[in-house]
């Protein structure tokens, strides 16, 4: 069962200690769950609830409000094409159409090899480079059809692995300072196996 690994459990405990009330750490911890497993697994959410002493239904109820959280598996690369106004005015509908044809999936769909999930999103605040998209929330601007094809090829071949970590990894910078000495994880938690991410 993909509960948090020992290292991630430690990170979660440190996060909880940063806030005056533990529940504030829920969303940051869910980001860790999604980083570990690629999506919010039921066990990962249950573990988050245990750490904060809240009901699994409460965890799910919160998670389901937010667009970045997936309660079902998605591809290694989440391709988010913006079609809001500035992008619309600069050809976003055509870009989305091309993306659908190239990946062979409609928005919301995942390619059979699990490499790509396509989604249509609202403004990603990168409008100076419209039309634009994000892959795992790394931004790419002024995207024409050929740029899109090259990007997909590069991602599939792993050529952008440094810039674009797998889906779920949001902030690779750990807080190193001002952490209260978080208690070491108790034994029954530390041996939770690290689950391979769906690929």
């Amino acid at each position: 069962m993909p509960r948090l690994t020992a290292e991630n459990l430690q990170r979660a405990r440190q996060l909880i200690a940063l806030y005056p009330q533990p529940r504030s750490a829920l969303i940051p911890i869910l980001h860790i769950v999604q980083e570990q497993d690629g999506w919010l697994t039921p066990d990962g959410m249950a573990h988050a609830g245990e750490l904060l002493d809240i009901d699994p239904a409460e965890v799910y109820g919160t998670a389901s409000f937010y667009d970045m959280f997936f309660t079902h598996p998605v591809g290694r690369h989440l391709v988010s094409v913006c079609t809001n106004l500035a992008c619309l005015l600069n050809g976003a509908d055509e870009l989305l159409e091309h993306a659908e044809a190239r990946l062979g999936v409609a928005p919301g769909g995942t390619t059979a090899d699990g490499q790509f999930t396509l989604e249509e999103v609202e403004c990603i605040a990168f409008c100076g480079a419209a039309p634009c998209l994000a892959v795992n929330w790394r931004f790419f601007g002024n995207i024409g059809n050929e740029d899109f094809d090259r990007l997909v090829d590069d991602l599939a071949a792993g050529r952008l692995a440094d810039d674009v970590p797998p889906h779920g990894t949001l902030n690779r910078v750990r807080r190193r300072v001002g952490l209260s000495a978080a208690a070491p994880a108790p034994a029954e938690d530390t041996d939770a196996p690290a689950q391979a991410r769906p690929s």
Partner: peptide, 23 residues
């Protein structure tokens, strides 16, 4: 949440500012 680079830059800056004694 979608600002991955912004989160990373700001988080690094907080680490630096702490070490510098500003936080």
């Amino acid at each position: 949440g979608e600002f991955a680079l912004g989160l990373e830059r700001l988080s690094s800056a907080v680490n630096e500012a702490y070490a510098f004694g500003a936080i």
